[in-house]
Design a binder for these strands. Structure first.
Lengths: 200, 200
DNA sequence: CACGAAACGGACCGCGCGGTCAACTTGTTA
DNA sequence: TAACAAGTTGACCGCGCGGTCCGTTTCGTG
């Protein structure tokens, strides 16, 4: 056997507690608070995740992987434009639960790999939609990946906002991505390969 | 005399150093680093700003005040649509120098008052533009104030980006604010009075 | 120039964090 | 059920932060 039963359960408990605590206090939430919320000792956290950064990376990896899988699923959809919108909705909903826009340093090769996977999947999705005429012709997959975070970022600036206010700003954003009434953009898109820090 | 000459010079030095250091390391930059960059002792920082938060508040107050004045100026412009775009450009440029999107708590009455002033000014600007038909009819001043930060927030996610890449995303955003091809928004706008945490 | 007040500097303090460790408990297997 | 590995725990450590304090320096004035 590789893992004891209680250990795998505690790992999940810790991840859930960390997500809640990070959502509540930001990444600066002390590890001790996470342990307390999970009903475990602080030492146990470090047994499962040698470093606080490893804990963060585990959360990010999970989220990025989930989004990549969603993009893959949606890539075969008949209405590509609607699929992009659907993807953005899911991303916003996930990000509403916990916002990870910070975290200076990089999070290891595993996360970087998952991000590349996600980038490819989104690229394919966007290419289809653009070919169908559902998106403006000068927008790229990288653009959409970056813009993914906008609705949550906007709402974050007013603390007492309605929980689904982000839908309003996703509406405005998506109108800006439509081909109708699109004005030429003043700057070329960023390169495909550009390493991005923490999109999910 | 109310202030010694070197004291007022050092205050400016400290503000400039703090802006640079915060831009470089984020708000968590230690006060000692700011003092070092200004060529002063750490104690001097606390003489001018009793608390680190007061230092941050001083920076924010300056920026918000400047933006409010700009909005007031632009309010008399003949082309109201262009004035909104111009305002967003200035805001993005200012925010590119230093990003203040964090800072949990509130920053005192002075800053709150300046923010209200800015909110009123932007509201007037947006009302004019909408009346002229330069903006979609369902967008409000509060919307624009919140969306102000979008171009910088987007670019922040890729570290090595071109310095004026934000213009691209301002282009997409503004296309979403135009009346042509606007789809109905799925959520009503937030109330005018909503206290917002750190827009500049 | 001399003198007092204002401004400065940096050693110092307490606190809370991430991370360690050795004693203890518990799940698993034969 | 015996026995061992795997897992847990919380007291503990070192560090770096925000903030204090007082001896020293500097500016402005008569």
């Amino acid at each position: 056997m590789s893992q004891r039963a209680d250990a795998v359960r505690n790992r999940e408990l810790l991840l859930a507690a960390a997500i809640e605590e990070f959502a509540l206090q930001g990444v600066d939430a002390p590890v001790s608070a996470i342990a307390r919320r999970a009903g475990l000792g602080k030492g146990t956290v470090f047994r499962h995740f040698p470093t606080k950064d490893d804990l963060v990376a585990a959360i990010v990896l999970d989220r990025v992987t989930r989004l990549a899988a969603l993009a893959d699923d949606l890539c075969g959809a008949p209405d590509a434009g609607g699929a992009v919108l659907e993807f953005l909705r899911h991303a916003a909903r996930q990000r509403q639960q916990l916002d990870l826009s910070f975290l200076s340093g990089d999070l290891g090769a595993e996360v970087a790999e998952a991000q590349e996977h996600m980038a490819r999947s989104i690229g394919a999705l966007v290419d289809h939609a653009r070919a169908e005429g559902a998106l403006r012709s000068d927008v790229t997959g990288t653009d959409v990946m970056l813009l993914m975070c906008v609705p949550n970022d906007v709402v974050k600036h007013l603390p007492g906002a309605a929980p689904d206010l982000w839908e309003r700003y996703l509406g405005i954003l998506f109108d800006g991505l439509r081909p109708e009434g699109a004005h030429p953009l003043p700057h070329p898109p960023p390169a495909r390969g550009s390493a991005l820090s923490e999109v999910p």
